[in-house]
């Protein structure tokens, strides 16, 4: 890999769900060793983008390269080998509900290595300590709050020390303290372990404070990209409204629909 080749290279990505176009020609570069944030209104397809990168969905057109390999041309075994080096934090946590917190974090380690239990214990406690939940190791996932579940999922995502982690909304449901800890954790993980992070989040201030580069996507396109400073200084009304969270402006709050007054006036049907 040459110095300038990005770790993830997305070119001319097209993807649709039914008749709805989610991506319409998107180009994104994720540089190795950096935190790249993907931002955009709810429902634009940020989660979908992460699943495309992870090879769980197949693009209609265009290509996605991760570490020089084209994700959707890989054979089953090669794709799984690549995924071992990617961590993903699901928006919902996606913890296994029939085993406790400890076993959840140990799960990828036990599946992929033959380490002795004593060493696994050390690794798991280390990861749980990092997210502040070492004391919760014996709880079942159903006994966790939403924010705690997300932190356990984070511990699990870093269990195998991947080269790249995709965070889907890591900050949602965190109180100000754990939010602060998570922000620092993501930054320090990235720097200390030389990880590459893709961060999907709505928390504009936190995200801007730790990311090195930001992509703003909307309606299937990249509307703006650049360093946080550049994005903050962006001349685009659209980006300004989004970053500052103003109610009025070009960003639609509503899912596409017919005119409101017309909708109310037409009787019958739905």
């Amino acid at each position: 890999m040459t110095q300038h080749e990005p770790l993830v290279k997305i070119r001319n990505l097209h993807f649709s769900r039914g008749n709805r176009k989610i991506f319409d020609g998107v180009d994104i570069d994720i540089e190795a060793g950096r935190i790249t944030a993907i931002m955009g209104p709810s429902g634009t397809g940020k989660t979908t983008l992460l699943k495309l990168i992870g090879g769980q969905l197949r693009p209609d057109k265009g290509s996605i390269h991760v570490d020089g390999q084209e994700v959707h041309r890989l054979r089953h075994g090669q794709l799984y080998a690549l995924r071992k080096r990617m961590g993903m934090l699901f928006q919902s946590g996606a913890l296994l509900t029939d085993i406790n917190v400890f076993d959840n974090v140990a799960f990828p380690i036990r599946e992929h290595t033959k380490l002795p239990e004593s060493l696994i214990r050390h690794l798991v406690l280390m990861k749980l300590q990092a997210v502040g939940l070492r004391g919760a190791r014996d709880l079942m996932p159903s006994e966790l709050s939403g924010g705690m579940a997300r932190r356990v999922a984070l511990a699990r995502a870093i269990a195998l020390d991947p080269m790249m982690i995709m965070f889907d909304e890591p900050f949602t449901g965190q109180d100000p303290i754990s939010m602060g800890v998570l922000v620092t954790l993501i930054r320090s993980l990235n720097d200390a372990l030389g990880l590459t992070s893709i961060l999907v989040s709505h928390d504009v201030a936190e995200t801007a404070s730790i990311s090195d580069y930001i992509y703003v996507i909307s309606e299937g396109k990249v509307v703006e990209h650049g360093t946080p400073e550049a994005i903050n200084r962006s001349a685009s009304q659209w980006v300004k409204q989004f970053m500052e969270g103003l109610p009025d402006g070009p960003v639609p709050f509503h899912y596409q629909a017919v005119d409101y007054a017309e909708d109310l006036l037409t009787g019958g049907g739905r």
Binding site: G54, Y80, M86, S92, A94, L95, T97, P108, H112
Partner: peptide, 22 residues
Amino acid sequence: GLMKSTEQLSGMEMMAVDPLAR
């Protein structure tokens, strides 16, 4: 079905564990 709807199968796939085999 519940494992699927709570994204546990999807999560396994991303951990490089094939849910069909596991």
